[in-house]
Amino acid sequence: MAEEERFAPFADAARARDADRLGMLIFLASEIMLFGGIFAAALALRLEHGPDYAAAAGHLKLWLGTANTAILLTSSLMAALAVEAARAGAPRRAARALLAALLLGCAFLAVKGVEYAGEYREGLMPGTATAHFDGPAQTLFMNLYFVGTGLHAVHVTIGILLMAMAALSQRARQDRNAMLIGNVALYWHLVDVVWLFLYPTLYLAGVR
């Protein structure tokens, strides 16, 4: 294959990298809008049923949510460090940092699982919920919580898989431009940013 064909349709590698990164950022913008629908629903519910919203949010496990915020932020740091390491030409350090980010991501899911299990036991899950709440608006908050965090958890899972892919690929680790690792890290940071807003929307709303 001729040299100029390698980056087709781009003329050179730098431009191809630029395009990849821009494509990723645009994709992330559309992800933001996807979660925007959930946040808009939470906003509407809060404006319509303020007291119910706060009362139902009080059922959430604030400390687990806070711990998860810390876990995810730290995981994001690890992902950023992995990019840093790959650029510095330290593939092993990059792999280790990615692994740490990935494990912290798993820890996040585990904590989330504990939370869900607790909520299931307490009968807060959709369908089992009516008995615990005063009125439908509170049940709705709980349902919205499950939809929002569930959709987020799906994104976390995808992020973990992507990071595993990047950590396993030798070419990705040795790429001094950190293209794959960089784009995976971007995705992971966005998953983090979404959580940063889910946290006050859901958990902090219930603190009296």
């Binding site: 007291p51 009125g135 608006a137």
Partner: peptide, 19 residues
């Protein structure tokens, strides 16, 4: 229908819903 939506100040939200 939704007694908890707006609770009068000084009263507990004890009214059952008639929805």
């Amino acid at each position: 229908l939704l007694p908890n939506k707006q609770v009068v100040a000084g009263y507990d939200p004890i009214m059952p819903t008639y929805g």
